[in-house]
Design a protein around this nucleic acid. Structure first.
Length: 218
DNA sequence: CGATTTTGACCAGCGC
DNA sequence: GCGCTGGTCAAAATCG
């Protein structure tokens, strides 16, 4: 699963629009991708590996699914397909057993150095909860995509080990365009300052442990 | 006045 | 069964 970011550069090619004041922007000096997880549907009896001590989620990476399948000696068939909900269906079939399917939701976690916890990512979010979690004096905020029919959620909290950093987790995939791409002339109130032509491509690393951060700055 | 945020309550999963 | 924890709900408050 590749997660791909590209600088939208909303001011390029737009005439007569002055560049924004630097004070209007957040300067993000560090931008890290922690995980490319998938989360098993809680109604399934599947469990995925690579669960971290800090996480109670049934989370694992695509690579972990392969590991699990390799450990399934009777496994004779496995397939991964996108389903109508923009999640993935994984089917597996073993000798003498019926085919079973599990729906998994992609999860991506970012660690961003920022003094602000809310950064515009191009989508419109509605806050639906706030919680103080164990071993973290900073609250965790819960957001849903406000677009009707889109079930993507995001969690935002300060890193308990270094409060200069913000941890942002996205669950699911948007089934619609970013509103930011539709309204070019309405820059968000808070935007990231991108490095020139920066691109981030998430590593399809076999090592999906959240303790091993992959640096994606340039 | 509609949209959004806040916040306490509620619920489910898990370990003991 | 009970307590702890994380996630969600929903009514009230606030904002634009």
């Amino acid at each position: 699963m590749d997660v791909y970011f590209q600088n939208p550069n909303p001011f390029s090619g737009v005439d007569n629009i002055p560049p924004p004041l630097s004070s209007d922007f957040i300067n993000v000096s560090d931008y890290l991708v922690l995980d490319d997880d998938v989360v098993a549907n809680p109604n399934s009896n599947w469990s995925l590996s690579s669960e971290t001590p800090e996480s109670s989620d049934k989370a694992g990476s695509i690579n972990d699914i392969n590991v699990i399948n390799q450990g399934f000696s009777d496994e004779i068939e496995t397939s991964i397909n996108n389903n109508s909900n923009n999640n993935m269906n994984i089917k597996r079939k073993s000798r003498g057993m019926n085919e079973t399917t599990v729906e998994v939701t992609p999860r991506v976690t970012f660690r961003t150095r920022s003094q602000f916890e809310i950064m515009d990512d191009g989508y419109k979010w509605r806050k639906y909860g706030k919680k103080f979690v164990k071993n973290n004096s900073n609250p965790r905020n819960y957001y849903k995509c406000s677009c009707e029919g889109c079930g993507v959620k995001k969690r935002v909290e300060r890193d308990r080990e270094d409060t200069r950093y913000v941890l942002t987790s996205y669950d699911g995939v948007h089934n619609h365009e970013s509103p930011c791409t539709l309204s070019y002339y309405a820059p968000p109130t808070m935007s990231l300052v991108y490095s020139n032509e920066w691109q981030l491509q998430q590593q399809a690393s076999a090592n999906s442990s959240s303790s091993n951060y992959s640096t994606n700055t340039n």
